[in-house]
Design a protein around this nucleic acid. Structure first.
Lengths: 313, 313
DNA sequence: AAGGTCAATGCAACCGTTTGCTTTAAGGAG
DNA sequence: CTCCTTAAAGCAAACGGTTGCATTGACCTT
């Protein structure tokens, strides 16, 4: 049915191995011959069969990318960057979604392990030791978590948190608060550590609802400068504060994290810590492909918009 | 290195073919034998090698999913649904991004064609006849476009547009307008056809900028009920109208399409036509896997929020 | 008791490429 | 002119499964 290496060999009058080498080891074949082979291949529309190639070489030229939730707006830019970068190296990318379920994550890793040359695991929900164990089966890069013994790519949220707090202090805020994320979130712990001495409110769901629910506690705390676990929480919080008659940024300044919203969509536009998702996607691929080694820590950036302002006097 | 079917055969004391059949044709092997095989396989951690299987059967158990832009918030829910549904049938999904470039789309299709059992092509940028030609190489499902001779999945945006206009008319609006999308957009044409007799404004970029740019024309038109090509345009329009001193919904009611925004993020919350992206993703997979036949047209739903209200008197 | 059926399993070819080894022939050294 | 080296190409064995066909018994039938 499909055009194989044999068809090309027949058309050119050479042996299949010569055709094979014309593609995968060009220096081993006479330039003139190679040109004839390539011309015939092109003319017949030959495309090497990746499955067959994978069988002999053991390399599939595929990567796996596992995220907790594809629809979470934080991930698509990362997926896009990773996919595009991988493709430029002739790799295809399987994208899989665990639905935030650690068991699904594990099963997925097991299934994928033998079918790909490497896996990018984003914001894993699995415990560290489990990850390390699974990493025996296949090269691994972890994004958004530091795992001993594995290469990882980190977006430096601690530094981002520090930036945000500095920004708030610079605006004269003296009473700060950190509205944290869910229990067990590695990122939330990082931020908390960076916000040393700042009162913590929560744990909270990493959603708008979580932010709304935290509004009362924030208002009661008397804080005027608030850092939130992520943008969704920040938006919920602003919403909840509004319901309590607290204005943002006049009464309270709020900073989010992730920059998942196109700037103009919301009122007030959110001051937030932008994550280098594109760079992270590319770095993860580079790590898998061996173009880079060792862990990567990428800087975040504070984007000041309208949800932060001078502290009220 | 890896555990193969032969290892399992040796461990069980049967021939490889029996092991193979224990997995792919269980009814052909004695239940007792099969149990022993399965137990040994499980114990050894055997996972069938998909590349090898693909080589003999010609089925890769992979699907390709091609979208114009992964980061466009319209797509991730569809990707998620398709991926999840495919996985429940033991298929893996390559996700690829064309960056809105028809040439990239074509090359991608060519490359992917031989490596997958089917391709889902979302909102293609390629011309119809090109698509039909490429479809000779691999089963194909087109989402968001009607292509003669190919199975397609459509989200019935025409019906959604009708719903929206009906809603506006029901609120007493007599002067309507349709803020259309870019030239050449199939979807935009569908909506325009559904909005027969309604003045058209544009073409416009399918972005917030496009909406902002259209504000003046909308205000000048005297329309009080406006249907927009998508949510981004609607948001831009609201923004642009605000700058002109026109209030939404007090002076003008605005309806978007896509429902890409979590409900509460924006003010006013947008009335919009929600697209059945999940269903579309699943349907596309079903079509490829033969679980369903013929074209699928999925209903859309109007979600009334705060950007529409009674016509001003 | 002989012949037939059928379930269960074994056998071996095949899928499309890669790759270590062998063969061929041409060119250079002595 | 013979021998050696080497570039180029051919040969054939993998890779890990699947599957049509052959073999083997056990169980029926009559």
């Amino acid at each position: 049915m499909a055009v194989t290496i044999r068809d090309v060999a027949r058309a050119t009058g050479v042996h299949v191995s010569t055709v094979s080498r014309s593609f995968s080891a060009p220096h081993l074949v006479n330039p003139a011959t190679r040109d004839r082979v390539l011309a015939a291949a092109d003319q017949l529309g030959y495309r090497p069969n990746r499955a067959a190639r994978a069988l002999t070489t053991g390399r599939t030229m595929n990567l796996g990318l596992i995220v907790a939730d594809i629809a979470n707006p934080f991930f698509p830019p990362l997926i896009k960057a990773a996919q595009s970068h991988a493709r430029s190296h002739d790799y295809h990318v399987f994208v899989a979604d665990t639905d935030e379920d650690p068991r699904a994550e594990e099963e997925l890793l097991r299934t994928l392990a033998k079918q790909v040359d490497g896996v990018i695991l984003c914001s894993p929900r699995l415990a560290n030791d489990q990850i390390v164990r699974l990493a025996e089966d296949v090269p691994f890069v972890v994004v958004n978590r530091q795992v001993e013994g594995l290469p990882w790519v980190l977006m430096d949220v601690a530094q981002g948190a520090a930036l945000a707090l500095e920004h708030l202090r610079g605006l004269g805020h003296r009473r700060l608060a950190y509205v944290r994320g869910p229990a067990g979130s590695w990122t939330s712990e990082e931020m908390r550590a960076a916000a040393e001495g700042v009162p913590v409110i929560g744990p909270n769901q990493p959603t708008e609802q979580g932010g709304i629910a935290a509004a009362r506690a924030v208002a009661d705390s008397g804080a005027t400068g608030v850092l939130c676990y992520n943008d969704l929480v920040a938006l919920g919080l602003i919403e909840g504060l509004a319901d309590l008659g607290v204005r943002v940024p006049a009464d309270v300044s709020v900073v989010g994290v992730d920059d998942i919203l196109p700037g103009r969509l919301n009122r007030p536009k959110l001051t937030t810590v932008a994550m280098p998702t594109d760079a992270a996607g590319r770095a993860a691929v580079d790590l898998l492909l061996g173009a880079e080694t060792g862990p990567v820590k990428l800087p975040t950036a504070l984007i000041v918009r309208e949800s932060t302002g001078e502290a009220p006097r």
